[in-house]
C-alpha cells in the first residue's frame, strides 16, 4: 500500500499500538506519543519518493548466519535461571492466571 499523504497517529491509534505492544500508557503519554510519532512518521514520508526495485530482498549485511550442530551442551541449571525471577514455586516460574475468573480477559 502507499503512505497516507499526511501521516498522523491519533491518541486512539496510539492506544491500539500500545495494546499490540503490551504497554500500559498514561493519558499524558498517549497525547505525547501521538504528537511525537506523527512528527517522526511525517519526516519518514521522504522514503515514499525513493524508487526501489521490487525484487526479492537479500539478507542484510553479514549473511554468514548458520545453525550450530544439534548437540546437547551444558546448561546453566534450573536454580541459576530461577534466581532472577520475581516469583517462582516448585521449580517453575509463577504468574497470575492468564484469564480472569468467570470469563475471557483477552
Amino acid at each position: 500500500m502507499r503512505y497516507n499523504q499526511a501521516m498522523s497517529l491519533t491518541p486512539e491509534q496510539v492506544e491500539h499500538i500500545a495494546r499490540l505492544a503490551r504497554l500500559e500508557l498514561t493519558a499524558e503519554e498517549r497525547e505525547r506519543f501521538s504528537r511525537q510519532l506523527t512528527a517522526i512518521l511525517n519526516y519518514f514520508q521522504q522514503l515514499q519518493e525513493v524508487e526501489v526495485a521490487e525484487s526479492a530482498l537479500t539478507p542484510p549485511a553479514g549473511g554468514d548466519a548458520r545453525l550450530r550442530a544439534d548437540e546437547v551442551g551444558e546448561s546453566l541449571g534450573r536454580d541459576a535461571l530461577l534466581a532472577n525471577a520475581a516469583d517462582h514455586a516448585g521449580g517453575q516460574f509463577k504468574t497470575p492466571p492468564v484469564f480472569q475468573q468467570g470469563g475471557s480477559n483477552e
Binding site: 503490551r22 500500559e24 497470575p96 492468564v98
Partner: peptide, 13 residues
Amino acid sequence: ADTLPDLYRRTRG
C-alpha cells in the same frame, strides 16, 4: 496485577 496480560502491560508500561 490480577491477570497475566495486565502484568505484562503494567510491568512494561
